[in-house]
């Protein structure tokens, strides 16, 4: 998988390495900006409220 990626990248070894770093950074940015914010509410990680408040919180 990653070997195929390495072969597909153009240039010599330093260029390939640099491209890898850039690609990884782009993936991290995409994850932080869009993927994680979308996924976080679906995970039962942190819940600060009581389950059935006297007045149920309305849907946003």
């Amino acid at each position: 998988m990653y070997a195929a990626l390495w072969r597909a990248l153009p240039g010599g070894r330093p260029v390939k390495a640099l491209l890898c770093v850039v690609l990884f950074a782009a993936v991290v940015v995409a994850l932080f900006a869009w993927v994680f914010p979308a996924v976080a509410p679906l995970l039962p990680l942190d819940n600060a409220t009581l389950n059935a408040p006297a007045s149920a919180p309305p849907s946003p």
Partner: peptide, 9 residues
């Protein structure tokens, strides 16, 4: 427990 709503009575 998360269902003990009496704490906000």
């Amino acid at each position: 427990r998360p269902n003990q709503v009496e704490v906000i009575a």
